[in-house]
Computed example of a mutant assay.
Amino acid sequence: MTVDSQGAVTSAPQDPPGRAAQSQDRTPPPPTGPKGARRPPRGKRSLPGGLLPYLLVAPAVLAMAVLLLYPLVRNVVLSFQQVNRKELITRQAEWIGFDNYTQLLGDSQFWTVVLRSVGFTAANVVLIMGLGTLIGLLLNRLGKRMRLVLSLALMLAWAMPIVASVTVFRWLFDEQFGVANWLMRTLGFAGYEQHNWFETGFSTLVIVTLLVVWGSIPFVALNMYAGLTTIGTELYEAARMDGANGWRTFWSVVFPNLKPFFLITTFLEIIWVFKAFAQVYAMNLGGPDRGSETLPVFAYIEGQGQAHYGLAAAISVLTIVMLIAAMSFYFRLILKQEEEQ
């Protein structure tokens, strides 16, 4: 509102409130043209969204293909060929199809080795899982100092090289100076003057079982203790208030919470024990009279000892098939468990 020279009052035109606010908040547009256009920084071009993960895993996949896939394919091809000493010298392998597999499946010695391997694996896995679980529970109950001492002892046993541990066990069960014979005589047992603990294949596998169990328990025990630390104390307190004893607490609290741990650890132990070679071969070379051979040792002796390389390749392929069958059972359990969740 303004006053003119004659005293008349006039009102000046005013903008609407909304338009006035818009005119105050309006900012000039950015400059256009080549100078105002944004350009991506040089040397930083983004990859397609789905390509980066494959590039990251490509080195590992390539290494596995070179170190694992190619030898596996060559081994499968070799199992369909006749490669003995003659073919190895002349470098002319004969393609015989499934003859190696037919010979193995019709050989009673092969099935004896298969049954021995299955029994050896079952005995070891049961002992490893049982004793490893008990030691893991013990670690969870011990104080800090004793837990540290026991953990260090387990780690030392786990870190022991296989050949060195086999040498120690052969000394323990030596005929003349072994600790085992001395202990049996000290306890009053007769017939242990220079007793040969490696006289039969069964006794040899018993000693190998002690070695394998001793070396495998630390893995199960330490992982068991790590799994127990994830279970809340309130669950134990609730079970204690309900009057559950230790055995009932294990089956109602520990086992349901650590069921995935027991599944994966059990099947890992099955694979490791079933394909154990160094412990069995270094202990007594698969003897006496090939009475302690398992499938890996059987394949090695047929290949390197008897120069039946095609037959040995077929044995190794059948061993892999058995392990795949066991793993398929494991994967079915995992899928069933995921569906239940």
Rank of each mutant, 00 (worst) to 15 (best):
T133N: 02
A93Y: 13
D242W: 08
A37Q: 12
G243K: 07
Q81G: 06
A221H: 02
F277C: 03
H308S: 08
P53A: 07
L52H: 08
A60E: 02
F177G: 13
I128Q: 05
M160A: 15
R45H: 11
P59F: 08
F262G: 02
L142R: 01
Q194P: 01
P16Q: 11
G143K: 06
G291F: 01
I207T: 01
K336Q: 15
A325F: 11
V149T: 14
Y281N: 07
W197M: 01
L105P: 04
L69S: 08
R332T: 15
L69M: 12
N75G: 12
V66E: 04
L56W: 14
V118N: 07
V61T: 14
S216V: 00
T2E: 11
Q341S: 14
L172R: 03
Y192C: 05
G188W: 05
I334E: 15
E293F: 00
M327W: 07
V166I: 09
T186R: 12
T27C: 01
L156V: 15
R116K: 12
Q103K: 11
Q337G: 15
N75H: 07
A238Q: 12
D99G: 04
M224I: 08
N284D: 02
T167S: 14
W251C: 06
A282W: 04
G243H: 04
S316L: 10
W214P: 08
L68E: 11
S151P: 02
P30N: 08
L72I: 13
L55S: 07
T133Q: 02
W95Y: 14
V57G: 00
W182C: 04
M224D: 00
E293V: 00
R141P: 02
L115S: 12
N84A: 13
W95E: 13
M322K: 03
V73Q: 09
D174P: 09
K259W: 10
F120W: 13
M184K: 11
S316H: 06
V280W: 01
F198M: 10
L187R: 10
N100A: 12
G227A: 08
A278N: 11
V208Q: 01
G191I: 02
P260V: 09
L210Q: 05
G227C: 06
E338D: 11
L88G: 08
F261M: 14
S46P: 11
D107R: 12
E338W: 10
G7I: 14
F120H: 03
E234L: 05
K275C: 07
L62Y: 09
P31E: 07
F173D: 02
M283N: 00
L172V: 15
S108F: 00
